[in-house]
Design a protein around this nucleic acid. Structure first.
Lengths: 142, 142
DNA sequence: TGCAAATGTTTGTACATACAAATAAAAGGG
DNA sequence: CCCTTTTATTTGTATGTACAAACATTTGCA
């Protein structure tokens, strides 16, 4: 039974969560090449482009809670992909030599994933749809 | 910084996950009234409408993996909202007196949530959007 | 008829995330 | 200048989900 036909197919909660899970599954497969979950890969890419970045801005850019950012950074620190220094109140996050080497491959994954999506969903449709999705969250939460 | 403006605003993985998290947050607030997570509420509503339902069909209808279904049923069993019987190879799930009493309130929550969504996003926009979202997962995974 | 493959469900384990509370530092006001 | 409030981050804890492996039952076929 397809979601669209199911009892609760009109529910935004249901639809968005189902979509996110399926999308994540595809994304996981793509980022497997660099042995990273897509979510960690995004964090890493930001750190690579903005050395010294702090958890606060990361939080805003990734739309995650502060505690989730801390946890993600910890995990990447364990794998020697970022380092963290705390001075006064501010924590700064830096990439490492290891993660710098990965940079081109990370961007390759972004491209790959995009190609996968457009191939499956259609380029125009995909862009339009992602655009809509980006607009909704601001409307939903204060 | 909004997702739409951020570096990775074109990415379907990023957009759909962000949307799902924000939507879930709103949904949690609505279903708080019945002290259930929206995901468990959906399971319960299906069980209430299809007594004797088995994990397999639930899996299909909810688009979740078998193990997740097992875990959800366990949790609801602990709270005496469902019971499970296993005979031969098939497990059947039934509602309880307690959960039957909740039924009208569950549907109220569905309505509440829908009203919230349409008020925030716009009714036409909301329906159109949910429709699109329901179609994409089938294209993404085999 | 008996064994192998298929099917349905559960268990072990891991992970991403969130909320609430704790901590630490800075800023502001009397 | 000290005390309170605010801000930034981390910790403790809980939850929802998935994957892989285990298990149990049924089916199919040789």
């Amino acid at each position: 039974m397809k979601a669209a036909n199911s009892r609760y197919g009109r529910c935004m909660y249901f639809a968005s969560n189902t979509l996110a899970r399926k999308t994540e599954k595809l994304a996981n497969a793509v980022w497997k090449k660099v042995d990273l979950s897509p979510s960690h890969a995004y964090l890493l890419m930001i750190v690579l482009e903005e050395p010294r970045v702090q958890p606060g801005p990361l939080r805003q850019e990734l739309h995650l809670t502060p505690s989730t950012i801390t946890r993600q950074v910890e995990k990447r620190e364990d794998k020697k992909l970022v380092v963290r220094t705390t001075e006064d109140k501010t924590t700064s996050i830096y990439h490492t030599a290891k993660s710098k080497e990965m940079k081109p491959f990370l961007h390759e994954c972004v491209d790959d994933f995009y190609k996968n999506c457009t191939a499956l969903v259609g380029k125009h449709e995909c862009n339009r749809f992602v655009n809509s999705m980006n607009k909704i969250p601001d409307k939903l939460v204060s």
